[in-house]
């Protein structure tokens, strides 16, 4: 893995479905996410490792990492 991996991930957030429970924020191993107001937002996209834990543990079908 070198410089070629620089393509940033696409984190899709559905604000209508997010309830701001913070599970994705808390479990993100690289601190990519934050709660802004009442819903989740991307804070540091470059830090995302595409591990997809946010998607896996989101109870609300509100977040996914589309490569």
């Amino acid at each position: 893995m070198g410089e070629a991996a620089l393509k940033l991930p696409n984190i899709r957030i559905n604000e209508k479905l997010c309830k701001g429970c913070s599970i994705c924020v808390d479990f993100c191993p690289t601190n990519v996410l934050e709660i802004k107001g009442t819903v989740v937002a991307v804070k540091d996209l470059a830090a995302c490792t595409r591990c997809q834990l946010c998607d896996l543990r989101c109870p609300d079908f509100a977040i996914s990492v589309i490569d």
């Binding site: 209508k16 309830k19 429970c21 589309i66």
Partner: peptide, 22 residues
């Protein structure tokens, strides 16, 4: 994942009734 949940959901019924964090 990523997974197309909409294939099995009735998307119009969302958001579901469950509390934040449930």
């Amino acid at each position: 994942v990523p997974f197309d949940y909409d294939k099995y959901l009735r998307p119009k019924k969302l958001p579901h009734i469950w509390c934040p964090g449930c």
